[in-house]
Design a protein around this nucleic acid. Structure first.
Lengths: 263, 263
DNA sequence: CGTGACTTTGAGCAGATTCAAGTCTTGTGG
DNA sequence: CCACAAGACTTGAATCTGCTCAAAGTCACG
């Protein structure tokens, strides 16, 4: 059933179980989307922003630029991810959002957002999504603050694997990673050259492989261990009156072997 | 008038103008606080948490620990800062909160929080505070991701200056910074040794000075420029129906010279 | 099949770490 | 109130991780 819906519906449904009417409302939004080229700014720093933006295909990111032009990517927006602009105080961006690849993007107008906000399950799901985004930000801070180059990349790939899997974009042990090494560099706070060398190290160790824009994870348990990846932060672990995301084996979150099993 | 109140009331009043009754309710919370020793965990990772925690004196921090024991500090909680535990989904911490110095801390029980939430101005202020915290997290990510050691420290000191000034804890150009170099290291993602050397560089350049636990900023404009500090993110720039925080000169936020003028 | 964008590789360099020793501060107990 | 001990800070030397600059190789697309 879920496979009939796009990533936006899938993601929100996973966060706060939606009703059929909710899904229909969200599906209408997915239908009304535009294609955007790689390297396009969806929102600029300092923009006065309203409504929401949803990524349906491709990768986008939140980023800031320093005066010298250096870019720091602060979050990836993968299909299903939403950026709630009304949730900013003062509706003013303190960072920009841009596409890392060609994307299909839906912009939701403020009045449509207002309609959505009449749906309790949708509100709940959006709030949970915002919390997960915040937790992710904290995890990234740890990543930059105290992990080595190889560890940072390993962690990033584990995170993307789990996130993309939840919207059905993982096939077997591989997924489409439509970003260039330059983007990975600005994400992990290193140079392209060093990203390249660290990727090489991960490949040589037999943990990952890359063919074109596809990333394959050959050894997820070891990759998780290298990146010290604990996926708990990506899940709403126990919702008030909601469902429980813990796994059958009793361990909170995902274990190394679980992660290898495609959903 | 404000000087009669503690930092909690001061801070929230600055964020979303409070009514007298609100202030009285908050002042009652400030009155009921406990002293806590440096190095105490107020909340541990994985704790099931409720209520709120307010720091009234001293410095605390949000932090995570890696398996190898390394600590990454993700936020400072200075007097007036609040940690809303009910706002977590699932009331489960994905990080810990601990004191960096001796502190005076108020724990607000869930039922008292519920009472507070009946006050619209308080809700508004707390939400704004949460937004500022999130924006701060993003700025810290940039700090770790693409600034040098000296730049990171410069940025951090500028931020603390502005935050502490807003709760009246800056005297002239100096403030109490009750943390050790080890803490600064875990904040900026470097080693104590390198923190020490970078502090030395800032001192030798005549930008800052340290006497005991007091940090003095001798040349704020240059310090801001070294850290590329733009304080906008610390302010609620335009509230819906609230007051405007932009400065007379029309520049959003604080200019270099403004920052030198004690409030 | 050529051009531009992306990736890979090498060599030398710089910023940050590690290890280690020594000095200064601070708090505590006698 | 002093002396001692523990904690915090400072400094040096060697090392290492990641950076810069530069060039060559590969891939995709018109």
């Amino acid at each position: 059933m879920d496979e009939l819906h796009g990533p936006f519906v899938r993601k929100l449904d996973a966060l706060g179980p939606l009703q059929t009417a909710d899904k229909i409302a969200l599906a209408a939004i997915e239908a009304d989307a535009k294609y955007v080229q790689s390297g396009t700014d969806l929102i600029r720093d300092d923009d006065r922003a309203e409504g929401m933006i949803v990524v349906l295909e491709g990768f986008a990111c939140r980023y800031k630029r320093r005066k010298n032009g250096q870019r720091q990517i602060m979050a990836y927006l993968v299909p299903g991810d939403v950026c709630d602009l009304d949730a900013l105080d003062l509706n003013r961006m303190d960072h920009a959002i841009g596409t890392l690849s060609n994307c299909r993007v839906a912009r939701i107008k403020p009045d449509v957002v207002s309609d959505l906000r009449l749906r309790p399950a949708v509100i709940q799901a959006l709030q949970t999504a915002a919390r997960v985004d915040e937790a992710t930000l904290r995890v990234w801070l740890v990543n930059l603050g105290c992990r080595s180059a190889v560890e940072r990349l390993a962690h990033l790939f584990c995170e993307l694997f789990v996130r993309l899997r939840s919207v059905g974009l993982v096939q077997g042990n591989s997924f489409l990673l439509p970003v260039i090494q330059y983007d990975l560099a600005d994400t992990t706070g290193m140079t392209t050259v060093h990203v390249n060398r660290s990727l090489g190290a991960l490949k040589r160790a037999g943990l990952i492989g890359r063919k074109g824009k596809h990333l394959t994870i050959f050894d997820m348990p070891r990759l998780m261990s290298v990146g010290e990846f604990q996926p708990d932060y990506l899940y709403a672990r126990k919702q008030v009156g909601g469902r429980d995301h813990s796994l059958p084996n009793g361990t909170a979150g995902l274990t190394a072997t679980d992660a290898l099993i495609p959903v």
